[in-house]
Simulated scan of single mutants.
Amino acid sequence: MMKTDDEIKRDVEAELRWDPDIDASNIAVNVKSGVVTLTGFIPSYLQKFEAEKDVKRVQGVVGVANDLEVRLPSVDQRPDPDIARDAVEALKTQLPYSYQNFKVVVRDGWITLEGEAEWNYQKEKADMAVRGVKGCKGVINSIKITPKVAAQEVKRKIEEAFLRSAELDAKRIEVEASDGEVVLKGTVHSWFEREQAERAAWQAPGVRKVEDRIVIQP
């Protein structure tokens, strides 16, 4: 039996309150046709992502619009040069062999990442590295993926990853690949499964764009 929007709303609110790593006191939850919209304020950029992860775990959720605004407490506000210095150090720590390929620009607490990467995991890891820098209000990840692998090889590697995954029914998902761009089609049973498929696609070498057309059928 499918959950109603009111039931999803209740469960999302409970999940947010249950998470000890976020302050959910100023978060408002709205649900329409299974799509959850988060509005209000959150005291750190890292908590904004944590709230989104909480929502995606709730059964019945088919989409999330994270419109939370980061409002840093005065004690966490810092000058842009200090944020930039710590962001560069975070990149060096998390990506010691490729951090030189990236550039950090900070304006009004927002960190912009620029440069090129061969693998999407490097782009993701760079984003995650700077996300927790004190004073960060948001991250704009402009790192470009430079494809160096043939489309058929990309398609094969993604399909093999699907077959290895215990969380995915590979027979229900179709993969198309062209010039570093991947399209996923088919059906899955949950948002988590859809996210796992997309993550597996991004982990293939040379992938610079994933268009996820997978439909959730609970």
Rank of each mutant, 00 (worst) to 15 (best):
M1T: 07
M1L: 11
K3I: 03
D5N: 09
K9Y: 07
R10M: 14
V12W: 02
W18G: 08
D19V: 10
S25E: 15
I27M: 15
A28T: 15
K32F: 07
S33V: 02
G34M: 08
G34H: 06
L38I: 15
T39H: 01
G40Y: 04
I42Q: 07
P43E: 10
S44H: 04
F49H: 08
E50M: 14
K53H: 06
R57W: 08
V58Q: 01
A65Y: 12
A65W: 08
L68W: 01
L68I: 10
E69L: 15
V70L: 03
V70G: 11
V70K: 12
R71Q: 14
L72V: 13
D76Q: 09
P79G: 10
P81I: 04
D82W: 08
D86R: 11
A90C: 12
A90D: 00
L91G: 02
Q94A: 09
Q94V: 01
Y97H: 14
S98M: 11
Q100V: 14
N101G: 05
K103V: 01
V106T: 02
R107M: 10
I111F: 03
E118S: 10
N120W: 08
D127G: 02
G132P: 07
G132R: 05
V133F: 08
C136K: 07
K148T: 01
A151V: 02
A151T: 13
E153N: 00
K155T: 12
K157V: 02
F162Q: 02
L163Q: 14
R164W: 08
R164E: 14
A166C: 13
E167M: 14
D169P: 10
K171W: 03
I173K: 01
A177N: 09
E181D: 10
V182A: 03
K185R: 15
G186P: 11
T187N: 15
E193F: 10
E195D: 11
E195G: 06
Q196K: 13
Q196C: 10
R199P: 02
A201T: 04
A201S: 09
V207R: 08
V207Q: 00
V210Y: 02
I214V: 15
V215L: 15
Q217C: 14
P218F: 01
